[in-house]
Nucleic acid binder design. Structure first.
Lengths: 250, 250
DNA sequence: CCTACCGATCGGTAGG
DNA sequence: CCTACCGATCGGTAGG
């Protein structure tokens, strides 16, 4: 169905006109897209090769096996994630405004390319042990930092005393990733004529409100932050994660 | 690999000794389990047939195709869900205790059989349009009722005025389902020696706290509910969803 | 980076 | 409910 053994001359390969990029990178990008959309088992090497404009054996020259390609896709995404971590840690200092920046950075990473969220959720279901180890290595370090700030906030009376820091952080990460991964469906809970894009924006806003409102005692999060509608919150995908936010947190 | 064309005499079929149940029901159960664990594309009809103790063509006698089996699995789960809806609507009257019961009923439905959550998340990723339509039919009606109660609570000053009811309900449903579906991974965010079961219990407790704390203005949710540890919350799977809760909400 | 090809397994059917 | 079998497609290799 995909390995069409004809009509593939050097002219018009199905390239997406994504400018340059070498072949291995193109393979990684198309594999990410297809794994996220159809899953690992639901995607054939021929499909990926076809999307890149080469043939299956050529793909297997760059990546020794399908599973090796899968691991490379994960590593590729993690390298993007690691670029963000320093900024995350900088934003993780206590205070509600700083926490808002931390939330927006994290949400922005996944809304900038929802495939990241879809891929992570799929892998968490398909290979929980592997993703678990990955979470331990790449998420837990700065999650621990956030937990420390939460406990400090509790000692200072700014954070609800009954927050379970580890569980709270785990649930918020879970909420961010899965809401981006499945926003096509949760938007169907209640759109009485609201556009899908508008509903998605409202979901992101509500996510941030829930995260802060359930953390801070301060009534600030319950009044100032909520109904500021026409801001640059609904970040468009395609661009790399936002770096223009975090300043104008309110 | 699975269709072992030998050693399958009437004696010792790989039945799980699950007592009675007719063959179609057994097929549905094993298909649910395998689809949830490995995904639709990652599960072969031979595997399902083997788990039931029959052969692939026999399975295709009961279900005309693999896709028909998938749809039946979804319907089978929805029939269980529909049993719960009346109780849900009864619990959906306003008030924090009633809302706590609603949360526990919903959480209990998925923790009673986490495969339900895993299956839903997988289907939402694989066939978002189909699950979207399903959400519209089976979730939106009572979600609308909950939204009405939230607005009433806002009018009475018991609920945060900046809650976006539709978005809030969508995110809470999303949070419940995905946290049950991926609890094997989010538990790895921060277990410094805590057992996985204990961490799962804390995640469920924190989920309920976040849901209430971000909704109600009342400081009750910020003090009374949090640190009551040794209750019967960590419901074991295998049994049908809980009916012993909802009474002792605090 | 390609053509040609491999064994294995897939969903599904014939026929009883 | 079974055996036997179908064409299609899978991941991967040989060889250039």
């Amino acid at each position: 169905m995909v390995d069409s053994y004809k009509a593939h001359g050097r002219h018009l390969p199905p390239s997406k006109s994504t400018a340059a990029s070498d072949v291995p990178t193109r393979i990684l990008e198309e594999a990410t897209r297809l794994f996220a959309a159809r899953g690992f088992d639901g995607t054939s090497l021929s499909e990926i090769a076809g999307a890149v404009g080469i043939r299956k054996p050529s793909l297997l020259y760059h990546f020794p096996s399908k599973d090796a390609l899968r691991r490379s896709v994960l590593e590729h995404m993690l390298s993007h994630w690691n670029e963000l971590v320093p900024r995350l840690l900088k934003a993780a200092t206590s205070g509600e405004d700083q926490y808002d920046a931390l939330l927006r950075e994290t949400v922005g990473f996944f809304t900038a390319d929802p495939d990241r969220a879809r891929l992570l959720v799929r892998e968490a279901l398909d290979r929980p042990d592997e993703i678990g180890a990955l979470v331990q290595r790449h998420v837990r370090p700065w999650a621990d930092v956030v937990c420390q700030h939460i406990r400090k906030g509790q000692a200072q009376g700014r954070v609800h005393p009954n927050v379970d820091p580890e569980a709270y952080v785990g649930q918020m990460i879970n909420l961010i990733i899965s809401s981006v991964a499945t926003y096509k469906c949760i938007g169907d809970v209640a759109p009485r004529g609201v556009s899908p894009d508008e509903m998605r924006r409202r979901h992101i806003l509500e996510l941030c409100r829930v995260a802060k409102s359930s953390l801070f005692i301060s009534p600030a999060s319950a009044t100032a932050q909520g109904r500021e509608n026409g801001r640059e919150n609904g970040r468009e995908n395609g661009r790399e994660n936002g770096r223009e936010n975090g300043r104008a947190a309110r």
